[in-house]
């Protein structure tokens, strides 16, 4: 039994909501678990701060907001600055390397100790661009996450991608996912189970 709280944050146009949706769909539809996804965004369609919050659990989820994320994906400096401190000890903090300035990072995050937050910087946008389009940076990040933490099944994640995207976009997105996943495997560990096994946040 495990429970995961994931926050994905960045700005409008980065596919933040889609990333949360895909993660939740993989869990809810293909892994047959409970999942909720709530989103927040500014009034602008593009460029404003944007976040999706995903909770995945074996039991029904009452309070749908993430209070102490097991995972934070920060795709922008603002996302990092606002949310980095929330990550649970032992949790994962994944950042878009080229959009979050290293010298502005929390100094206590990079330590790999048992209680520390595990920080990984990935040039997801650059990887996406090399694959053909920066628009799939969110999917690169999802692949990276899935290699590091067993939140959803690999097959469920791929099914969610295939069933949610327009046909013409599936191949590129699967490639992006694989690319991120491969980078994640290179990190060399996988958080088996929930890192903290804490109860639902308050």
């Amino acid at each position: 039994m495990s429970r995961w709280e994931v926050k994905i944050a960045g700005f409008g146009g980065q596919g933040i909501i889609l990333a949360g949706y895909l993660l939740g769909k993989a869990a809810a539809v293909y892994d047959r678990r409970h999942a909720t996804m709530v989103q927040s965004y500014g009034p602008e369609a593009r460029g404003s701060a944007c976040a999706s919050q995903v909770i995945i659990a074996d039991e029904p989820i009452s309070y749908p907001y993430v209070t102490e994320p097991d995972v934070l994906i920060a795709m922008s400096q603002e996302a990092y600055t606002r949310f980095a401190a929330e990550v649970k000890p032992g949790g994962l903090l994944l950042i878009e390397r080229d959009l979050v300035a290293l010298d502005m990072m929390r100094s206590d995050l990079a330590r790999p100790g048992e209680d520390g937050v595990r920080l990984h910087a990935l040039p997801a946008t650059k990887i996406a661009e090399e694959l053909g389009h920066r628009i799939v940076a969110n999917i690169v990040m999802l692949g990276f996450l899935c290699a590091l933490a067993p939140i959803v099944s690999l097959s469920g994640m791929k099914e969610a991608l295939r069933s949610s995207l327009p046909k013409s976009a599936i191949e590129l997105n699967l490639m992006a996912f694989e690319a991120g996943y491969a980078r994640g495997l290179q990190v060399g560990y996988n958080l088996a189970g929930n890192p903290s096994q804490r109860k639902e946040g308050v």
Binding site: V29, H34, A35, M37
Partner: peptide, 9 residues
């Protein structure tokens, strides 16, 4: 607004 936009099974 939350129940309208919450995405769930």
């Amino acid at each position: 607004a939350i129940i309208g936009h919450i995405t769930e099974r």
